[in-house]
Design a protein around this nucleic acid. Structure first.
Lengths: 342, 342
DNA sequence: TGCTACAATGCAAGCGCTTTCATGAAACTG
DNA sequence: CAGTTTCATGAAAGCGCTTGCATTGTAGCA
């Protein structure tokens, strides 16, 4: 417990001296303990404790070219969508002895490119990225440096890049069919910004594909694009209801937007689902909290997170090619989708 | 654009050679550009671009003993409470050229101690911590290493440690007085786990102090302690309503718990606020999303985050003693607090 | 007893960067 | 024009760690 009062932190050298061994031995003792005799190990551990020694991470990374750190770059932390899956990702990582480094981009592609370089510069052994869509340069950078990476929250049947997620487009087709089944013909769409966000884009594509199949021209279906927030969802909904032929169902590309839409519906005196149906996507906690409960698409966030962690570690340790996984989403028919009014 | 195909990443040396200068010059060029002639600078920047050079962060940290990185350790990322303030914290940090490293503890004091060491080992120039309560060893460690730190989300009038936040206890006293003003005498409390979480503890203290002042014995007021989650809030509420003398108002230590309580109330067929009043704390987005809208205490999360960032940078750069700031919280009287039934 | 085999340890060379100090050239001074 | 600054640059010493290789001591074997 002898503190290093004000002095610079204790180094491996200090520990070595205190334990009467060389720095090599201390290092081995701290890493691959099996190569050191029990007696020495005890002396070293004592010295470590007495000095309050903590290994300097930078020095370690520099010398070992290995950090046991995985980086994850997500669009935003404010959104429950990623928080859930990321939590599971981190838990699994920790169990396997890895540390997670998170950073967020605010849905800005340039900042994502920046953060990729940043996390690599920081020595991340592997990277988790959200979705497919990003500059080709970023992909080039990753393969030039031979950094294992995994895409998450998305899965495109034909694509070869390793990804783990669900088919956003197909999920939305399924949901849209349910909406159509309820007799809705006038549909409104509230989407997130699709540029640079393939999840949002694929979901909209899904809606449109299903509509087309049902003989509805998707080009005549009103769509409002706005960034993910409750107030934005509310505003978009209000705008949608100002138009000429008002929709009888509003499909939102995620639950946050849908919650906003519901709020706005209430403010406009519209009953859900009697006067208007509203659907979401993601099935975050919010979905079953609002009144009435939101009809949405359930996504196995936690499974995805923990599977992603396992796979990424495999990639890092085995230097394998990298596989893709498709997870199943499922509809959650709750209370906000009802029969079409007319 | 000449990629380093498969090879190890380009280093300062490579850049220096390509530009025909020494590594010292390249380094200066990348850091304090004013000390290098314009012509050389151009050559260097060209070389950097051509090689796709990215400085190795670990090497830089090791040599410079400076990282321009601030660490933040929060209880959880899943909770909107911290996400908001942290976002602002990060934004301000970025503007000033710093990077944020976040890690979470799951409300586990041991993991917090671990993470403190971890972030310091990673070279964080300063630390943001939540609340006052933690092992004395951690505080000792920080001062031994002379690491600037700032406590947030709490502010205790008498305490000398630099903190930025609001008076949790006083805020809750104010809210409780409003509850009492509505005629409530039978109060129930749903709290987070108070051990290791002084925010929760202070809030409960606030309720109890106000009750005592009103002549109600706080020891006879039922309290259920549970970890922060909607379902836990719901369960706690149900349990509270099973007791002998049912409360007419349930005060929750945060909005998440309150949202759970409201859900449970609905399931039990209780109307809010006619049959039972419910209050929250924090005023996260959720609060105005639930039906009816939650009466709660508003906390200036974003202001706190950005002020914290500024102050922490000052601490890091000026090595000043470290000041404390008290922010004002305010009541948001919405729809879930009504007159007592009897 | 002399030999090999092996386990435990030490020596020392880096990892990629910053920074002090020295150096030489150019720009001033009187 | 010699003497003094100023400026741009380079040489080289680390920062704290890991790790390949060399060295030692001891056990195992014939």
């Amino acid at each position: 417990m002898t503190g290093q009062l004000g002095a610079s932190p204790p180094t491996l050298d200090d520990v070595a001296q205190a334990a009467g061994v060389s720095t090599a031995t201390v290092s081995r003792c701290l890493n691959q303990s099996e190569k050191v005799s029990q007696e020495t190990a005890k002396r070293v551990h004592n010295a470590v404790k007495n000095l309050g020694y903590t290994p300097n991470f930078s020095a370690r990374a520099l010398a070992a070219k290995r950090t046991f750190t995985i980086g994850a770059i997500i669009p935003t932390m404010e959104n429950a969508i990623f928080a859930r899956g990321l939590q599971a990702f981190q838990e699994t990582l920790n169990i396997k002895g890895y540390t997670l480094l998170v950073s967020s981009t605010g849905y800005d592609p340039e900042r994502e490119a920046e953060q990729i370089r940043n996390l690599i510069a920081r020595g991340a052994d592997g990277l988790l990225l959200i979705g497919y869509e990003r500059d080709e340069d970023s992909y080039k950078f990753l393969s030039a440096r031979q950094i294992p990476y995994l895409l998450a929250w998305a899965h495109r049947p034909g694509d070869t890049r390793p990804a783990i997620g669900f088919d956003n487009q197909q999920s939305m087709i399924d949901l849209t069919r349910e909406v159509l089944k309820q007799g809705h013909r006038e549909i409104g769409i509230i989407s997130g910004i699709r540029s640079g966000n393939d999840r949002a884009a694929d979901r909209v594509k899904g809606i449109r594909a299903a509509l087309r199949q049902a003989g509805i021209d998707p080009n005549h279906v009103p769509l409002i694009e706005t960034s993910y927030s409750i107030t934005n969802g509310a505003e978009a909904f209000a705008k949608l209801m100002q138009g000429g032929n008002k929709p009888t169902a509003v499909m939102c590309v995620n639950d946050v937007l849908a919650a906003g839409a519901m709020q706005s519906a209430r403010d406009l005196g519209l009953r859900v689902p009697q006067d208007i149906s509203i659907t979401g996507f993601d099935d975050i906690e919010l979905a079953s909290l609002v009144t009435p409960k939101l009809t949405t698409v359930h996504v196995p966030h936690r499974d995805m997170g923990s599977l992603a962690a396992q796979e990424l570690i495999t990639l890092v340790e085995k230097k394998q090619p990298g596989r893709s996984f498709k997870l199943e989403s499922s509809l959650r028919m709750r209370e906000t989708l009802g029969k079409a009014k007319r």
